[in-house]
């Protein structure tokens, strides 16, 4: 698969923009999923995931073909997510007062209250609960837990994506697990 990706990258670098669509369709699911889990909002996730692919495209000439493309792409995406989270924080309370901005959340609430079989509702609740618990984690633990347990990436790859030593990644996963354990224990 890496050989195919590298072939497409070379085509894009030669000026064949259309070859990039193969790269996007190959990684869209993973990138979007990470963004959604990080940001806890579908619209923002779509925004940031698109931004990640556009950034990767405009900086493609800086990508080292000997490295793994997905690692590079995930690094761009997670950095964008963390930037977005940090930018959002100070505005949080101000935003809460504006009716228009929590419209998005309201909309997703309404969509999920359509009556479904009990089984389905139970499953929905679990999924909501998972997303809620994940979003309660500090972002430095959140990102490692998502990459490790939702994307199921090896520790070494997580360390490459986040550009931090393997030991730091392990420590953060340990603390993330403990934080989650405590959150779940309280309920």
């Amino acid at each position: 698969m890496d050989a195919l990706v590298n072939k497409r990258i070379k085509q894009v670098l030669k000026g064949d923009q259309q070859a990039y669509s193969d790269i996007v369709s190959l990684y869209q699911q993973q990138v979007y999923h990470v963004c959604y889990r990080m940001l806890n909002n579908r619209h923002e996730a779509e925004d940031i995931a698109q931004e990640a692919f556009i950034r990767a495209y405009t900086n493609l000439h800086t990508f080292d073909l000997k490295r793994k493309f997905s690692t590079w792409l995930f690094r761009i995406a997670t950095n964008l997510c963390i930037d977005r989270i940090r930018k959002k924080k100070p505005d949080y309370y101000l935003d809460a007062e504006i009716a228009g901005t929590d419209g998005l959340d309201m909309y997703s609430q309404i969509a999920s209250t359509n009556r479904l079989p009990d089984e389905e509702v139970e499953r929905m609740e679990l999924q909501e609960r998972i997303q809620y618990e994940i979003s309660c984690l500090p972002e430095k633990y959140r990102v490692v837990i998502i990459l490790k347990y939702m994307e199921e990436l090896p520790l070494q790859e997580i360390s490459d994506i986040l550009n931090m030593p393997l030991g730091t990644v392990k420590t953060r996963i340990h603390r993330g697990r403990e934080a989650l354990r405590k959150q779940l224990g309280n309920l």
Binding site: Q28, Y32, H33, Y36, A45, E46, I130, E133, I134, Y149
Partner: peptide
């Protein structure tokens, strides 16, 4: 196990 049971959230159509 709880975290791993998270369902995959489908990417919006027309994303590409």
């Amino acid at each position: 196990a709880f975290v791993k049971s998270a369902a995959v959230i489908e990417v919006p159509p027309n994303f590409v």
